[in-house]
Amino acid sequence: MDRKTHKLMTNRTLHRRANVARQYLQRNEGGRGLQSAEETIRTEEHGLSDYIKNDEKGYNRLLKRLTKTRSKSEYQNRQKETKEKDWKEKALHGQYAKIADKTDIKRNCKWIKNGYMKKETEGLITAAQDQALPTRWRKVKIEKQSGTSLCRVYNERDETTFHILSKCSKIAQTEYKRRHDKLAQLVHWNLCKRCRLQHERNWYDHTAEKGLENENVKIFQPDIIVKDKGNEPYLDNRHSNARGCKNRRKGEEYRKISEHCRDISRLWMTSTNVVAVIVGALGTVVRLEEF
Protein backbone atom coordinates (compact mmCIF):
# COMPACT_ATOMS: atom_id res chain seq x y z
CA MET A 1 0.00 0.00 0.00
CA ASP A 2 2.81 2.45 0.89
CA ARG A 3 4.62 1.63 -2.33
CA LYS A 4 1.51 2.23 -4.45
CA THR A 5 0.81 5.52 -2.63
CA HIS A 6 4.36 6.74 -3.22
CA LYS A 7 4.20 5.85 -6.92
CA LEU A 8 0.85 7.62 -7.29
CA MET A 9 2.10 10.82 -5.61
CA THR A 10 5.40 10.83 -7.51
CA ASN A 11 3.61 12.13 -10.61
CA ARG A 12 2.90 15.54 -9.04
CA THR A 13 3.67 16.03 -5.35
CA LEU A 14 6.79 13.92 -4.65
CA HIS A 15 10.11 13.90 -6.47
CA ARG A 16 11.13 10.41 -7.52
CA ARG A 17 14.72 10.84 -6.31
CA ALA A 18 13.97 12.63 -3.02
CA ASN A 19 14.55 10.89 0.29
CA VAL A 20 11.72 8.42 1.00
CA ALA A 21 12.05 8.33 4.80
CA ARG A 22 11.72 12.12 4.95
CA GLN A 23 8.27 11.94 3.37
CA TYR A 24 6.92 10.19 6.49
CA LEU A 25 8.38 12.59 9.06
CA GLN A 26 6.14 15.23 10.62
CA ARG A 27 5.94 18.56 8.84
CA ASN A 28 7.26 20.52 11.82
CA GLU A 29 10.39 18.33 11.67
CA GLY A 30 11.11 18.94 7.98
CA GLY A 31 9.12 16.04 6.52
CA ARG A 32 6.04 15.95 4.29
CA GLY A 33 3.69 14.48 6.91
CA LEU A 34 2.58 11.33 5.08
CA GLN A 35 1.10 8.48 7.11
CA SER A 36 2.53 5.02 6.51
CA ALA A 37 -0.14 2.32 6.31
CA GLU A 38 2.16 -0.31 7.81
CA GLU A 39 3.26 1.98 10.64
CA THR A 40 -0.35 2.91 11.43
CA ILE A 41 -1.30 -0.77 11.76
CA ARG A 42 1.74 -1.54 13.94
CA THR A 43 0.98 1.49 16.13
CA GLU A 44 -2.58 0.29 16.72
CA GLU A 45 -1.28 -3.19 17.55
CA HIS A 46 1.06 -1.74 20.18
CA GLY A 47 -1.78 0.43 21.51
CA LEU A 48 -4.02 -2.63 21.92
CA SER A 49 -1.13 -4.44 23.56
CA ASP A 50 -0.77 -1.60 26.10
CA TYR A 51 -4.50 -1.81 26.88
CA ILE A 52 -4.32 -5.53 27.55
CA LYS A 53 -1.23 -5.14 29.74
CA ASN A 54 -2.91 -2.51 31.90
CA ASP A 55 -6.22 -4.38 32.16
CA GLU A 56 -6.63 -6.09 35.53
CA LYS A 57 -9.55 -8.35 34.56
CA GLY A 58 -8.94 -12.06 34.80
CA TYR A 59 -9.91 -13.11 31.26
CA ASN A 60 -7.11 -10.97 29.82
CA ARG A 61 -4.34 -12.75 31.75
CA LEU A 62 -3.84 -15.28 28.97
CA LEU A 63 -3.73 -12.53 26.35
CA LYS A 64 -0.97 -10.72 28.25
CA ARG A 65 1.43 -13.48 27.25
CA LEU A 66 0.79 -12.64 23.57
CA THR A 67 1.20 -8.89 23.88
CA LYS A 68 4.05 -6.82 22.46
CA THR A 69 7.08 -6.27 24.68
CA ARG A 70 7.47 -2.67 23.47
CA SER A 71 4.90 0.00 24.35
CA LYS A 72 3.12 2.21 21.82
CA SER A 73 5.14 5.33 22.67
CA GLU A 74 8.42 3.39 22.50
CA TYR A 75 7.48 2.03 19.07
CA GLN A 76 6.58 5.48 17.77
CA ASN A 77 9.81 7.02 19.10
CA ARG A 78 11.88 4.24 17.58
CA GLN A 79 10.21 4.63 14.18
CA LYS A 80 10.83 8.39 14.30
CA GLU A 81 14.51 7.89 15.16
CA THR A 82 14.88 5.36 12.35
CA LYS A 83 13.43 7.76 9.77
CA GLU A 84 15.57 10.68 10.94
CA LYS A 85 18.69 8.48 10.88
CA ASP A 86 17.90 7.21 7.38
CA TRP A 87 17.51 10.82 6.15
CA LYS A 88 20.41 12.50 7.95
CA GLU A 89 23.02 9.80 7.42
CA LYS A 90 22.66 9.80 3.65
CA ALA A 91 25.76 11.39 2.07
CA LEU A 92 23.73 13.49 -0.39
CA HIS A 93 20.26 13.82 1.14
CA GLY A 94 21.64 14.45 4.61
CA GLN A 95 23.64 17.59 3.77
CA TYR A 96 20.68 19.93 4.18
CA ALA A 97 19.59 18.14 7.37
CA LYS A 98 23.03 18.76 8.90
CA ILE A 99 22.81 22.45 7.98
CA ALA A 100 19.27 22.72 9.35
CA ASP A 101 20.32 21.22 12.70
CA LYS A 102 22.74 24.14 13.19
CA THR A 103 20.07 26.77 12.50
CA ASP A 104 16.60 27.59 13.80
CA ILE A 105 14.84 24.30 12.99
CA LYS A 106 11.36 25.54 13.97
CA ARG A 107 11.52 28.50 11.60
CA ASN A 108 13.12 26.36 8.89
CA CYS A 109 10.09 24.06 8.86
CA LYS A 110 7.45 26.75 9.35
CA TRP A 111 6.76 27.06 5.62
CA ILE A 112 6.08 23.31 5.43
CA LYS A 113 3.98 23.24 8.59
CA ASN A 114 1.76 26.15 7.47
CA GLY A 115 0.99 24.36 4.19
CA TYR A 116 0.20 27.48 2.15
CA MET A 117 2.25 26.35 -0.87
CA LYS A 118 1.13 24.06 -3.64
CA LYS A 119 2.16 20.44 -3.24
CA GLU A 120 4.17 20.64 -6.46
CA THR A 121 6.13 23.60 -5.07
CA GLU A 122 6.76 21.78 -1.80
CA GLY A 123 8.03 18.76 -3.72
CA LEU A 124 10.39 20.90 -5.80
CA ILE A 125 11.88 22.68 -2.76
CA THR A 126 12.35 19.49 -0.74
CA ALA A 127 13.95 17.84 -3.79
CA ALA A 128 16.38 20.77 -4.03
CA GLN A 129 17.15 20.40 -0.32
CA ASP A 130 17.89 16.71 -0.88
CA GLN A 131 19.98 17.61 -3.97
CA ALA A 132 17.75 15.35 -6.02
CA LEU A 133 17.33 17.75 -8.96
CA PRO A 134 18.85 16.52 -12.27
CA THR A 135 21.89 18.82 -12.32
CA ARG A 136 24.94 18.05 -14.47
CA TRP A 137 26.98 17.14 -11.40
CA ARG A 138 24.39 14.61 -10.26
CA LYS A 139 24.06 13.04 -13.71
CA VAL A 140 27.83 12.59 -14.09
CA LYS A 141 28.96 11.85 -10.52
CA ILE A 142 25.95 9.99 -9.11
CA GLU A 143 24.13 8.49 -12.08
CA LYS A 144 27.40 7.85 -13.99
CA GLN A 145 26.18 9.37 -17.26
CA SER A 146 28.56 10.64 -19.92
CA GLY A 147 29.17 14.37 -20.30
CA THR A 148 30.59 17.21 -18.24
CA SER A 149 29.66 18.18 -14.68
CA LEU A 150 30.52 21.88 -15.17
CA CYS A 151 27.90 24.61 -14.95
CA ARG A 152 26.17 25.19 -18.29
CA VAL A 153 26.18 28.97 -17.67
CA TYR A 154 29.52 29.65 -15.96
CA ASN A 155 31.31 26.53 -17.30
CA GLU A 156 34.05 26.61 -14.64
CA ARG A 157 32.57 24.98 -11.50
CA ASP A 158 30.48 21.87 -10.94
CA GLU A 159 26.76 22.40 -11.50
CA THR A 160 25.41 21.40 -8.09
CA THR A 161 22.17 22.55 -6.50
CA PHE A 162 24.02 24.90 -4.14
CA HIS A 163 26.03 26.33 -7.03
CA ILE A 164 22.87 27.18 -8.98
CA LEU A 165 21.21 28.75 -5.95
CA SER A 166 23.97 31.03 -4.71
CA LYS A 167 27.39 30.61 -6.31
CA CYS A 168 27.01 31.24 -10.05
CA SER A 169 28.43 34.71 -10.81
CA LYS A 170 26.70 34.87 -14.19
CA ILE A 171 23.23 35.14 -12.65
CA ALA A 172 24.21 37.09 -9.54
CA GLN A 173 22.88 40.38 -10.93
CA THR A 174 19.69 38.88 -12.35
CA GLU A 175 18.13 35.94 -10.50
CA TYR A 176 19.91 36.48 -7.18
CA LYS A 177 19.06 40.17 -7.18
CA ARG A 178 15.43 39.42 -8.03
CA ARG A 179 15.25 36.96 -5.12
CA HIS A 180 16.80 39.52 -2.77
CA ASP A 181 14.33 42.21 -3.93
CA LYS A 182 11.38 39.87 -3.35
CA LEU A 183 12.48 39.32 0.22
CA ALA A 184 12.91 43.08 0.72
CA GLN A 185 9.45 43.63 -0.79
CA LEU A 186 7.89 41.27 1.77
CA VAL A 187 9.73 42.94 4.67
CA HIS A 188 8.75 46.42 3.46
CA TRP A 189 5.10 45.38 3.06
CA ASN A 190 4.98 43.98 6.61
CA LEU A 191 6.53 47.15 8.01
CA CYS A 192 4.03 49.34 6.17
CA LYS A 193 1.18 47.16 7.39
CA ARG A 194 2.42 47.29 10.97
CA CYS A 195 3.05 51.06 10.92
CA ARG A 196 -0.29 51.75 9.17
CA LEU A 197 1.30 53.18 6.04
CA GLN A 198 -0.01 52.86 2.51
CA HIS A 199 0.31 49.29 1.21
CA GLU A 200 -1.37 46.81 -1.12
CA ARG A 201 -3.60 44.00 0.03
CA ASN A 202 -1.10 41.32 -1.08
CA TRP A 203 2.64 41.62 -0.50
CA TYR A 204 3.51 40.52 -4.05
CA ASP A 205 1.54 43.48 -5.45
CA HIS A 206 3.29 45.92 -3.13
CA THR A 207 5.70 48.52 -4.54
CA ALA A 208 8.36 49.70 -2.10
CA GLU A 209 8.53 53.47 -2.36
CA LYS A 210 11.72 55.33 -1.42
CA GLY A 211 10.19 57.33 1.40
CA LEU A 212 7.01 56.87 3.42
CA GLU A 213 6.00 58.83 6.48
CA ASN A 214 3.18 59.41 8.93
CA GLU A 215 2.94 61.06 12.32
CA ASN A 216 4.83 58.20 14.02
CA VAL A 217 7.48 56.74 11.68
CA LYS A 218 9.55 57.27 8.53
CA ILE A 219 10.63 54.39 6.26
CA PHE A 220 13.52 54.86 3.80
CA GLN A 221 14.96 52.79 0.96
CA PRO A 222 17.05 51.02 -0.48
CA ASP A 223 18.20 49.55 2.85
CA ILE A 224 15.04 49.55 4.91
CA ILE A 225 15.60 52.19 7.57
CA VAL A 226 12.73 52.82 9.98
CA LYS A 227 12.90 56.01 12.03
CA ASP A 228 10.53 55.94 14.96
CA LYS A 229 9.83 59.56 15.83
CA GLY A 230 9.34 58.65 19.46
CA ASN A 231 12.25 56.20 19.83
CA GLU A 232 15.57 55.31 18.22
CA PRO A 233 15.75 54.29 14.52
CA TYR A 234 16.63 50.79 13.42
CA LEU A 235 18.17 49.38 10.26
CA ASP A 236 16.96 46.23 8.53
CA ASN A 237 19.47 44.18 6.55
CA ARG A 238 18.50 41.34 4.20
CA HIS A 239 20.72 38.52 3.12
CA SER A 240 19.97 35.31 1.22
CA ASN A 241 22.21 32.35 0.55
CA ALA A 242 21.94 28.62 0.00
CA ARG A 243 23.93 27.32 2.97
CA GLY A 244 23.60 30.33 5.27
CA CYS A 245 26.36 32.89 5.85
CA LYS A 246 30.02 31.96 5.61
CA ASN A 247 32.39 33.50 8.13
CA ARG A 248 33.99 35.82 5.58
CA ARG A 249 30.61 36.89 4.27
CA LYS A 250 29.34 37.52 7.80
CA GLY A 251 32.39 39.68 8.51
CA GLU A 252 31.80 41.80 5.43
CA GLU A 253 28.11 42.24 6.22
CA TYR A 254 28.84 43.13 9.83
CA ARG A 255 31.42 45.75 8.80
CA LYS A 256 29.05 47.38 6.29
CA ILE A 257 26.17 47.46 8.75
CA SER A 258 28.38 48.91 11.49
CA GLU A 259 29.54 51.71 9.20
CA HIS A 260 25.96 52.43 8.14
CA CYS A 261 24.78 52.56 11.76
CA ARG A 262 27.53 55.02 12.68
CA ASP A 263 26.54 57.28 9.77
CA ILE A 264 22.87 57.21 10.81
CA SER A 265 23.76 57.90 14.45
CA ARG A 266 25.85 60.92 13.48
CA LEU A 267 23.15 62.20 11.14
CA TRP A 268 20.23 61.97 13.57
CA MET A 269 22.24 62.26 16.80
CA THR A 270 20.75 59.08 18.27
CA SER A 271 21.45 55.38 18.72
CA THR A 272 20.33 52.69 16.28
CA ASN A 273 19.15 49.08 16.39
CA VAL A 274 19.87 46.54 13.64
CA VAL A 275 17.37 43.83 12.68
CA ALA A 276 19.10 41.26 10.48
CA VAL A 277 16.88 39.19 8.16
CA ILE A 278 19.06 36.25 7.09
CA VAL A 279 17.22 33.61 5.06
CA GLY A 280 18.76 30.82 3.02
CA ALA A 281 17.67 30.18 -0.55
CA LEU A 282 16.30 26.81 0.57
CA GLY A 283 14.48 28.21 3.59
CA THR A 284 17.11 27.98 6.33
CA VAL A 285 16.86 30.72 8.95
CA VAL A 286 20.07 31.59 10.80
CA ARG A 287 19.83 32.19 14.55
CA LEU A 288 20.36 35.86 15.33
CA GLU A 289 23.00 35.07 17.96
CA GLU A 290 25.12 33.44 15.21
CA PHE A 291 25.28 36.62 13.15
Rank of each mutant, 00 (worst) to 15 (best):
W203G: 02
E215R: 07
D181H: 08
L14A: 03
G211E: 05
E89Q: 15
K256Q: 09
T40P: 06
I219S: 00
T67Q: 06
I171W: 02
K110T: 05
I224Y: 01
I142V: 08
R32D: 10
Y154G: 01
A281Q: 11
A91W: 13
K177W: 08
C151E: 00
I105D: 13
N247E: 12
Y24T: 03
S49N: 02
N155K: 12
T160G: 00
L133Q: 07
D50S: 08
T40L: 09
I278F: 11
K144W: 00
A128V: 06
T67G: 04
R17P: 02
V275Q: 06
D130F: 02
W111N: 14
V277T: 11
E84S: 12
H15F: 10
K113A: 06
K167D: 09
R107P: 05
E84I: 13
I225Q: 03
R17A: 06
E81W: 13
I142L: 01
T272F: 03
V217T: 02
N247P: 10
G211R: 14
A276E: 05
L186W: 15
I125T: 10
L288C: 10
R266D: 09
L25I: 12
E215Y: 04
A18W: 05
A184N: 07
Y116W: 11
E122R: 10
R201Q: 11
P233S: 02
F291Q: 01
Q129L: 07
I278T: 05
Y96I: 06
W111R: 09
C195E: 10
R61G: 08
D236N: 15
W137K: 00
W189M: 03
S149R: 00
F162P: 00
Q198W: 14
E175N: 08
I105F: 15
L183V: 11
D2S: 07
N114T: 12
W137G: 00
H46Y: 06
T148G: 01
Y75F: 15
K210N: 09
L124F: 13
E38W: 12
R201L: 13
K53P: 09
K182V: 11
I41C: 14
R196S: 14
N202H: 15
G33S: 12
E38A: 13
E81C: 13
K53M: 07
D263V: 02
W111C: 04
Q79S: 13
L133D: 01
R78M: 09
L197Q: 01
T10V: 08
L66D: 03
V140W: 00
K98N: 14
E253M: 15
S73V: 09
G31I: 03
A132S: 15
R248G: 07
Q221L: 11
M269W: 09
H46D: 05
C151L: 00
Y176V: 02
G115K: 09
R178I: 07
I112P: 01
K88F: 10
D130K: 03
G30Y: 05
L48A: 11
V20E: 10
K177F: 10
F162R: 01
